[in-house]
Nucleic acid binder design. Structure first.
Lengths: 200, 200
DNA sequence: TTAAATACTGTATATAATTACAGTTATGAA
DNA sequence: TTCATAACTGTAATTATATACAGTATTTAA
């Protein structure tokens, strides 16, 4: 998101939520009422700012003519992760796909396109898209996206302690990966909350 | 859909399309303009009829306050198929989940909840939801939903001719199923176009 | 055959909604 | 210091929108 202020983020999220739950965007006065503005122009100003920052579009003269821009409405699909930067860096985003609230039980921050066959025993195949939530605390038994010394991998987390983390490939041809979080640089990028496969 | 007339179906589909492409529902006059009505009341009447038939909801006094009802916006998830009737019969619908245009390359008519392990070698596991399109012509190599003498099954179609159809389980513990369409009652319910798995 | 439903036209009005203009106050960058 | 941005209040006007009422003609189910 393009440097939204705290307040702008609040407004933007409200609009997004309204669209999702109501099926149509809010009016200026509905926004004002929600945030306690005494003038609908406060909402108007915010909408203009959000439009200027490219996160939404406004249809002139149209009631409730607010739409989320492509940039802000889609969920990024991450292909290969380049070394160094954050996983959601621009250069890693292969495309975005529409948000699909209600299909999975958890929220999805991004999709990761699966490489290799290390998880086929749990039915995760190459080129599947796995849905990742960044905020669920990782726990034993979960399928996690981990970054070990800048290499990103998807495995089942089978042990987690201060001195030892074990990541298990779900494929009998591969061996467990043991990581010492004190020595190695281990980051959990998120937990797998779903899987999407497209037969095209 | 609850016995919509031809005209009502047209109106309903237009509203659905507008919501999908614009992000918000149309007004009475937009509907009227599209269909050539000379009075916005024609649209009003249609909306009332569609509401009465339960396919949409109207928020009173609210501009563009049209929402598709759950019934009409969701895609049915089929659990166990009872013998005799059509696969999409009311009693087979376990729940509905929101439509997700843009995620899969083909349209989805329903989801089928997978039973058993006969397709695990292609990564289709028990309780996965497979997305089914009813209208794609079935062809060799596709994963299809077939009904053989009233029993519904998901298999790979490996041979199809007038006298012999072979359905292959993707699990080495199972054997091919040979069907003679002249003797057995064989119906193809659709082609698998995607897969959805929820890790909850 | 009769009433109800369908599919509209035509008119009218209250109110919902957008949006411009004129300000105020605070903050951070040039 | 000064200007741009942010975050509002307050007022007002045009226009967008919902929606009622009164009709007409046709089709469909009881």
């Amino acid at each position: 998101m393009k440097n939204l202020t705290k307040r702008q983020t609040e407004i933007f999220n409200y609009i997004k939520d309204e669209i999702e739950s109501n099926g149509y965007p809010p009016t200026r006065s509905e926004i004002s009422k929600t945030f306690g503005f005494k003038s609908p122009n406060a909402a108007e100003d915010h909408l203009k700012a959000l439009k200027k920052k490219g996160v939404l579009d406004l249809a002139a003269g149209t009631s409730r003519g607010i739409t989320l821009s492509n940039q802000s409405s889609g969920i990024p699909v991450i292909g290969l992760v380049s070394a160094g930067g954050p996983i959601l860096a621009e250069e890693n985003i292969e495309k975005t796909i529409p948000n699909n609230p209600g299909i999975l039980s958890h929220g999805v921050d991004f999709y990761l396109k699966v490489k290799g066959d290390s998880m086929i025993d749990v039915g995760i195949f190459e080129n599947d898209l796995i849905a990742i939530n960044k905020n669920i605390p990782v726990k034993k038994g979960s399928i996690v996206v981990a970054r070990i010394n800048d290499e990103v991998t998807v495995k089942t987390l089978t042990k987690i302690s201060d001195s030892q983390v074990i990541l298990r490939p779900e494929n009998s041809s591969y061996s467990d990966i043991e990581v010492n979080p004190k020595k190695d640089n281990l980051i959990f990028e998120g937990t797998c909350v779903g899987l999407l496969r497209d037969f095209s």
